[in-house]
């Protein structure tokens, strides 16, 4: 079986990339192929990266409160590109009250502050399917 391919992206204007970089390394050390897009990626750029990289998983790191704007756009673009089967997870500062909205949009995992890296690795291993 081929390795899971994960695009880690940091959308929005925020530049705090400690979390994105730490989780990217953790997923790589857990045996996944990780592509880090770098900072300030629009939903269009992220979907295009997922397409080009044949991603199984998209992980978004958002700390700025912009998730309610970014997630709907990203999910719509994924549907347009017939990438609905890509597992989308979000980590960062997400208020409890916004979690149901994100889940309803199709975001499968929302990881709030303090989540152990191992939980995220396990979640991805459990929910992502390597695309063929």
């Amino acid at each position: 079986m081929r390795k899971l391919r994960v695009v880690i992206a940091k959308p929005g204007l925020d530049g705090h990339d400690r979390g994105a970089k730490v989780i990217a390394r953790a997923l790589r050390d857990a045996g996944m192929e990780v592509i880090y897009t770098g900072l300030r990626q629009t939903p269009e750029q992220i979907v295009s990266a997922a397409l080009q990289e044949d991603a199984d998983v998209i992980g978004l790191s958002i700390l700025s409160g912009a998730h309610n704007h970014i997630a709907p756009r990203l999910m719509a673009l994924l549907r347009e590109q017939k990438l609905d089967d890509v597992l989308v997870v979000i980590g960062g500062i997400i208020p409890d009250s916004d979690v149901p909205t994100l889940v309803a949009l199709g975001v499968k995992g929302v990881f709030q502050p303090g989540t152990p890296m191992q939980n995220i690795i396990d979640f991805i291993n459990q929910h992502a399917r390597a695309r063929v």
Binding site: G12, L13, R40, S64, G65, A66, N68, H69
Partner: peptide
């Protein structure tokens, strides 16, 4: 250095 009406500012104005 972006005004509130710039597309990149969407969802970020006044948040942080």
């Amino acid at each position: 250095g972006r005004d509130a009406d710039h597309p990149l500012a969407a969802g970020e104005v006044g948040k942080c």
